[in-house]
Computed example of a mutant assay.
Amino acid sequence: MERCGWVTEDQVYLDYHDHEWGRPMKDDRELFELLCLEGAQAGLSWLTILKRRKQYKEAFDQFDPSTIAGYSDEKIEELLQNEGIIRNRLKIRSVVKNAKAYQAVVEQYGSFSSYIWSFVDNQPIINHWTCLSEVPSQTEESRMMSREMKKDGFSFVGPTICYAYMQSAGLVNDHLTGCFCYQEVNQLIEKGEFR
């Protein structure tokens, strides 16, 4: 079974690639969780974050934005002692900042999903990469997303993080054309089946 070239033999990575990565996501809370995890990943490997995802969910109240937006300085200090997550003050504070920004865009757009999907005109971009070296680290869409999200109060949303986010949330199908998931994801897009 052929997969994208970035996948290792680690079962956590295999499961993530085969069942989550690149499949269009519309659930607000899941989109928020993914944004927070992408920010936590900055400078690290995605596998490092995936292996800590359960601990992150527990530490950050299942990524409930309304709860996180109310975190006190004491709560942040508590999180800095949590060995199950990346204990970086800027990254932890960014989750709180992003929860507040999330609330503001939901008020304006009706849902976080509507806001996020507006960056691709509500339609996933289907790419046709045949090898890993063709896949960009950022695109014009991710640069625009980054600019707008920063303007709207989000942090840890540079153009490269935004593109990784777009890939994982299925705003783009960046599975390689030879990967068994490529056609599966295209079929989900055609049927409008988003998770």
Rank of each mutant, 00 (worst) to 15 (best):
S66M: 04
S66G: 00
T67A: 10
I68Y: 00
A69G: 03
A69P: 02
A69D: 00
Y71H: 02
Y71E: 01
Y71S: 03
Y71Q: 02
S72F: 03
D73W: 04
E74M: 02
E74V: 04
E74Q: 14
K75M: 03
I76D: 02
E77T: 02
E78T: 11
L79R: 01
L79A: 03
L79T: 01
L80N: 10
Q81L: 12
Q81K: 15
N82V: 00
N82C: 10
N82G: 03
E83S: 14
E83K: 14
G84R: 11
G84W: 12
G84V: 10
I85E: 05
I85K: 05
I86M: 08
I86H: 05
R87L: 14
R87M: 14
N88Q: 12
L90P: 04
L90T: 12
L90K: 15
K91T: 08
K91M: 11
R93Q: 15
S94T: 06
V95I: 15
V96L: 10
K97Q: 15
K97P: 01
K97G: 06
N98F: 05
A99L: 10
A99I: 04
K100E: 12
K100Q: 15
K100I: 09
Y102M: 09
Q103A: 15
Q103P: 02
A104H: 13
V106R: 15
E107F: 07
E107Q: 14
Q108P: 05
Y109D: 12
Y109K: 11
S111T: 15
S111Q: 10
S113K: 08
S114H: 15
S114W: 04
S114Y: 08
I116T: 08
W117N: 05
W117M: 09
S118K: 07
S118Y: 11
F119A: 11
V120T: 09
